[in-house]
Each structure stands twice: as structure tokens, then as C-alpha cells.
């Protein structure tokens, strides 16, 4: 029993990283932009988030406070991701470049920048970049009182996580309402489904695509920061972060482009990614666990295309640029 609980808790920790990445990409894809640069964006988020917290601690010294560091790290990561997506948006929306190729270029660029910043900090600080224990604890602290955490079974599963998990859940619920219940959200979906119709209705395609892609990139980047600050223990670790962005892209499909599904979807994916560390099932090699998320995603992709039901599809214009004059 306790093993299952610890598995769930670990799955949530890794799932939180994925949830941010996925929520950001859902927002982006709802506008019809398939941003394959998530991998690079999350690298940049991780590196700049770490840099924000690290240099803040260096400047403030012993007086550094946890909440400020967390907010700074979130802001730095968001800004880095937003900047990266702004490049992508400018190229695909204004300069009409191919989305797949631009996204891949952003992946190469972003992993390069993230690596560069991580390495650069390491070299300029003399070999080792890590936060002090105070801040480290702040990033992985539980936010609920012990009384709640100590409730048997439920306490650990629901209340033992970091602040980032609850932020991600709030974000998912907020996005659900935004996309389904607000005028702007409906306009955004219209842009992603059928830009020419939206354009005829007087919605500014360019504005919606830019805003959704940039905000989405910023949210994805927070995921990279969360990975570095919680799972990786506040040190730059590019090996651990590699592939997380692609997993987030897979998860978007698994979730059927719905923010609420991202909550449980990311925990399941998180479980599949860390299960090999904790559970060993005889006859199934541990490495095979790790490809499960991708196999499951492929199956979901195939089934949705076969059933062809209308509400479980990618946004209709996903991956296609919109040129008004080429209708």
C-alpha cells in the first residue's frame, strides 16, 4: 500500500512538469499553431528559471526568501518561454514560414540556449551552481498543514505536493473555463478550427494566434523550471530534461486537447515514466515501460482518427498557416 502511495506521489511530481508543458501546448495548438519547439522552450525555462533564483539568492544573500525566489523563477521561466515562442510566432504568423520546420529550429535553438546558459553559469561560478538549502527546501516544500498531510492514504495523495502542482491544477481549470465559457476562449477556438470563418466574422487571427502561442510557450517553459527546481534538485541537469518536451507534445494528443484531461493524463504519464524505478514486473524489461507513453499516444491517435467523432479531433487547422489572400 505504502509503495502504491509513494508511486502516486512520485508520479505527481514528474506529472507536474508535464502538466505545465502540456497546458501551454494545448493553448498554442488551440490557435492552430503546432509548436514543435516545446523541447527547446522547456530547456530555456529550466535554465532561466534556475538562473533567476540563483542570482536572486546571490544578490539577497542570507535574507533570500523562498516565496520571492519561487515567483522570480516562475517569471524568468515564463519570460524565456514567451520570448522563444515570440520568435516562433513572428516567423510562422508574420513571415509565413512552415510550422514544422520552424518548430524544429526552435527546438534546436532552445536546447542550445538552455545548455549554454546552464554551462555558462557553471563556468562563471567556478564549477558548481546550486541553490542554498533554504531555497531548495522552499521549492519542494509542502504547502498544506501537517494535519492534512497526515490523514491516512488521502493525505499523502492529495496534500503532500509542492505548490507547483496546485498551481498547475488551478491553471488547467482556468483554461477549461477560458476555452469553453468565455468569449475570448471561443474566439480562440474558432481561429484554430477555421481561420477563414473567424476572419470573416471579424476576429483578428493574427492577434489571437500571437497571444495564444506566446502565453502557451511561457506556460510550457514553467514546466522546465519545475523539473530543474524539484526533481533535479536545483542543479542544471540537461540529461534529465531531454525528451520531456516531446513527451508533453504526446500528452496533448493523449488529453484530446482538453485542459482538464491534462490533470490525470500527466499523472498517468508521470507514473509510466518513473514506474521502472519503483515497480518491477517480471518478464517486462524496465526500458519497455519508458516507451509506454508513446505507444499509448499512438494508439489514441489511431483510434481517434478511425472513429472520426467530431469533438475528439485536433483543431482543424492545426499545423497550417493562414494566408488571407490564398483562400
Amino acid at each position: 500500500m505504502s509503495m502504491i502511495i509513494s508511486l502516486i506521489v512520485a508520479a505527481v511530481t514528474f506529472g507536474t512538469v508535464l502538466m505545465f508543458g502540456t497546458l501551454g501546448e494545448i493553448l498554442t495548438e488551440k490557435s492552430g499553431n503546432l509548436n514543435l519547439g516545446v523541447e527547446g522552450i522547456m530547456y530555456m525555462g529550466g535554465a532561466f528559471g534556475l538562473a533567476g533564483a540563483f542570482y536572486y539568492e546571490k544578490a539577497a544573500g542570507a535574507a533570500a526568501s523562498g516565496p520571492v525566489a519561487i515567483i522570480l523563477a516562475i517569471l524568468c521561466a515564463f519570460a524565456a518561454g514567451a520570448l522563444a515562442s515570440a520568435i516562433y510566432s513572428f516567423l510562422t504568423i508574420s513571415l509565413r514560414t512552415n510550422q514544422n520546420v520552424t518548430g524544429l529550429a526552435l527546438s534546436i535553438f532552445g536546447t542550445g540556449v538552455g545548455q549554454f546558459v546552464g554551462e555558462f553559469m557553471r563556468l562563471s561560478e567556478g564549477g558548481y551552481v546550486a541553490l542554498g538549502n533554504n531555497l531548495k527546501d522552499a521549492f519542494s516544500a509542502r504547502i498544506w498543514p501537517d494535519a492534512l498531510v497526515n490523514i491516512p492514504v488521502v493525505g499523502n495523495i492529495l496534500f503532500s505536493h509542492t505548490v507547483f502542482f496546485y498551481l498547475a491544477v488551478v491553471l488547467a481549470v482556468a483554461m477549461h473555463f477560458f476555452l469553453g465559457r468565455t468569449r475570448w476562449g471561443l474566439y480562440l477556438r474558432a481561429v484554430g478550427e477555421s481561420p477563414s470563418t473567424a476572419d470573416a466574422a471579424g476576429i483578428s487571427i493574427t492577434r489571437y494566434k500571437y497571444l495564444a502561442t506566446i502565453a502557451g510557450g511561457g506556460i510550457s517553459a514553467i514546466g522546465g523550471m519545475v523539473y530543474i527546481m524539484t526533481t533535479a534538485g536545483c542543479v542544471w541537469n540537461h540529461e534529465g530534461l531531454s525528451g520531456v518536451g516531446w513527451l508533453a507534445v504526446a500528452l496533448v494528443i493523449f488529453c484530446m486537447w482538453r485542459p482538464l484531461n491534462a490533470i490525470w493524463g500527466s499523472v498517468i504519464f508521470g507514473a509510466m515514466m518513473i514506474m521502472y524505478l519503483r515497480v518491477s514486473i517480471p518478464f517486462i524489461p524496465t526500458e519497455i515501460y519508458k516507451i509506454l507513453p508513446y505507444v499509448v499516444t499512438v494508439i489514441v491517435l489511431i483510434i481517434t482518427s478511425m472513429r472520426n467523432s467530431r469533438d475528439k479531433q485536433p483543431p482543424a487547422s492545426l499545423g497550417l498557416n493562414y494566408f488571407r489572400e490564398e483562400r
Binding site: L34, L36, N100, G243, W246, V249, A250, I253, P285, T286, E287, I288, K290, I291, Y294, V295, T297, V298, L301, I302, S305, M306, N308, P314, L318, G319
Partner: peptide, 27 residues
């Protein structure tokens, strides 16, 4: 056959292949 999105499908196939090699390597 079913117009399945090829961008996402081929992308996933990458990681399945890499996972298979990781398994062969250790197994």
C-alpha cells in the same frame, strides 16, 4: 487509410524506436 495525423505519429515512432534500442542495450 484513416488520415491519421502523420506529424504526431512519426514523432512518437521516434521514441518507440529509441526505447527499443535502450532495451536491447541493457537486455
Amino acid at each position: 487509410k484513416w488520415n491519421t495525423n502523420e506529424t504526431l505519429f512519426t514523432l512518437m515512432m521516434n521514441y518507440i524506436a529509441i526505447g527499443i534500442v535502450a532495451w536491447l542495450q541493457g537486455g
